[in-house]
Design a binder for these strands. Structure first.
Lengths: 87, 87
DNA sequence: CGATTTTGAATATTATATTATTCATTTTTA
DNA sequence: TAAAAATGAATAATATAATATTCAAAATCG
């Protein structure tokens, strides 16, 4: 028997990912926020695992080249799969 | 040269996916909303490509057994990869 | 076809995500 | 180690996501 990840866990994982990817590119919360037209507080809350909007999540995914991966995951379910995506 | 998907496109893809998966299980918007402790309006807006919250998205992903896939995508970036996930 | 169910849409209200500002603490770096 | 930069956290204000209600149109079904 295998239990999947919870919503809270997923938010914390997402939070950790943002922090890791941001530090990997040596950006401060302020710098990342500016590039995404968000406030530093929004980035800080996202990295703290707080709830957020799809716009905020997708801006981050797009910046770190993960938006296409998410879109692929979505497409796989609807039968769109155009497969040859590089991202 | 390859341009990735846009944020608006991703929201529309997500919207379409929710509608497809919901109909696949022969659920009305109302029934799905009740199972996720959301209002029908929230489901309707999500299926219309409107902005939403992570909680709403994750509830839907969890219901359709896609939350673990998203978590895996996230883990891959942070170096957590415990790989053997079934979902 | 007629009846029922489902869906889209509008309004108004509530809950909360986003923001600006400020300050204390921590981390970085010179 | 001292100075500077970055972060966490609190408050208050604004924007907007979520909700309840209602109604018309569309889809589904007997």
């Amino acid at each position: 028997m295998l239990i999947g990840v919870s919503i809270k866990e997923t938010k914390l994982k997402t939070a950790e990912m943002v922090k890791v990817l941001r530090k990997r590119e040596k950006l401060s919360q302020e710098q990342l926020a500016m590039r995404l037209n968000l406030s530093r507080i929004t980035i800080k809350n996202l990295e703290a695992g707080k709830n957020a909007t799809l716009d905020t999540l997708f801006k981050v995914l797009q910046y770190f080249d993960l938006l296409q991966s998410f879109a692929d995951l979505v497409d796989r379910e609807t039968g769109q799969q155009d497969y040859d995506s590089i991202y």
